[in-house]
């Protein structure tokens, strides 16, 4: 079970969290072409190594935040509040 550092609450058990997907995809502007929206909705990389993800502290403070996790090892490399940048090793 992962030990996830919520940027507001500190380290907590994985069971308190909900996974929210890839944090690197950018929501297109409202008037972006259909192709941009299709890419946003359907296309995801499957990186091997550090990956920035969104997580929700659903059974805690109910904050969404960013987490950098190594998909090969489950090592957690850092977390950041929304609006802040993840530090450390870049993906």
């Amino acid at each position: 079970m992962l030990l996830i550092p919520c940027p507001w609450c500190g380290p907590r058990n994985q069971i308190e969290f909900t996974y929210g997907g890839d944090a690197t995809v950018q929501r297109p502007g409202n008037d972006a072409p259909e192709a941009a929206w299709e890419a946003f909705v359907y296309m995801r990389d499957n990186p091997s190594g550090p990956h920035d993800e969104l997580w929700l502290h659903s059974a805690g403070c109910r904050s969404w935040f960013k987490l950098r996790r190594d998909t090969r090892t489950h090592d957690i490399l850092g977390s950041a509040r929304m609006g802040d940048e993840l530090g450390g090793e870049s993906p």
Binding site: T18, G20, L54, L56, S58, S63, W64, M82, G83
Partner: peptide
């Protein structure tokens, strides 16, 4: 609820 929180916290801050 989760979707609204996501939109308000992540996309439309």
């Amino acid at each position: 609820m989760q979707q609204l929180e996501y939109l308000l916290q992540a996309e439309w801050r």
